[in-house]
Amino acid sequence: MVAGLTACASTQTAETGVVNDPYEGFNRQMFAFNNEVDKYALGPAASAYETVTPRFARDRVGDFLQNLKSPVIFVNDLLQGEGDRASTTLGRFMVNTTFGIAGLWDVAGYNGIEGHSEDFGQTLAVWGVDSGPYLVMPLLGPTTPRDLFGSGVDRAMDPLTWTEFADNPDLDDHIAIGRGVLGGLNARVALDDQIEQLNAQPEPYVALRRIYSSQRQAEIRNGRLNEAEAYEDLPDFDEYED
C-alpha cells in the first residue's frame, strides 16, 4: 500500500477509464499478503521508528533521500524532452547538496523551487509504450509490466548502484539496504492516516487500484486529476453498509 500511495502506475485506458486487471484473482491474493506484511511487520516497525525518531529527524531523512533521487529524475526529464523541468531538477540538486548540507534540508523548496518526480516508467509512457495489465507484486505492491521494467532501469541509472568503496567493499550494499529501509519506514509513517482510511473502505483493493492508476496518469501528464475524475469508477460504498 505504501508503494501504491507514493509511487504510481498507469492501468487506465484513455477511452473508458477502466483499469485493465485481468489477473485480479492473483492480485487480490498478493494484496492480502502485502496487507499482512504491513499489519505484522512494516506497520509495527514504522510505529517504533516514529516513537524513537522525532519529526525533525524524519524530515531530514526524507529530504536527504529525495535529494539522492535527483540524478535519476534529471535523466528522465531529459529523456522526456522536458528541458525546463530538467533545469529545475539540476538546480535543486546543486542548491540542496551545497546549501542544504548534502540534501538534509530542502533549501530549494523553501525558496519556491518545487521538486517533482520522474521515472523511466513515465518516460516509456511518454514514448507511447503501453502499460500492460495492472499487477500487484509481493512486497513491491502495485505496478505494471512497463513500470516494473522501468524501475529496474532507474536502478541501473542510479550512480549509487555502481559506487564502490575500496576500503570497504560491502559498504555500498549497506548503504542500499539502509536507504531502502529508511525510505520505507519514512513513507509508512507519513502515509499512516491515508492507509487507515484506505483500510476502512469496504473494498480497499478496488480503492487502491483506482487511486494508484489515477495518480499515475496525472504524473505521466505532469499534472493532477480533479477529485471527481480520480474516483469516478469506485464502487458505490453504500451498497456495503448492510
Rank of each mutant, 00 (worst) to 15 (best):
E50P: 00
R58T: 05
N76W: 08
P71H: 11
D130F: 02
V107C: 02
A125T: 12
V107A: 02
G91Y: 08
R60D: 03
L68F: 14
V129D: 02
R55W: 10
Y49L: 04
F99H: 04
E118V: 04
L79W: 12
T89E: 09
V129N: 03
R60F: 13
L135A: 08
F56C: 01
F56G: 04
V107W: 02
K69M: 11
T123V: 10
A108F: 00
Y49S: 02
G128M: 12
Y134D: 10
L90F: 13
E82F: 04
R92I: 00
F99A: 07
E114Y: 01
K69S: 11
G115N: 00
V126N: 04
D84I: 06
L79Q: 09
T98C: 05
N96T: 06
A48V: 15
G100V: 07
D84W: 06
N111L: 13
N96C: 09
E50A: 14
G112E: 01
L124R: 05
T123Q: 07
Y110P: 00
Y110F: 13
N96Y: 08
N111R: 04
G81V: 07
V61S: 04
L78H: 08
G128S: 10
Q80V: 03
Y134T: 12
G81N: 12
V136N: 06
A57I: 15
T98E: 01
P54W: 14
V72P: 03
E82K: 15
M137A: 11
D77K: 02
P54L: 11
P71M: 10
G91P: 05
L124E: 05
G103E: 03
S87A: 14
G83V: 15
L90C: 03
P54N: 15
G81L: 08
R58L: 12
P54I: 14
P71K: 12
G81M: 12
L90Q: 03
F120C: 09
M137Y: 09
V52E: 05
L135G: 01
P71F: 15
A48W: 13
V95G: 03
D63K: 06
D106F: 01
T53P: 00
D119L: 13
G91K: 08
T89K: 01
P44M: 14
N67K: 06
Q122H: 10
R92A: 00
S131N: 12
F64G: 01
A102N: 06
D130Q: 15
G112P: 00
N96M: 10
G100H: 08
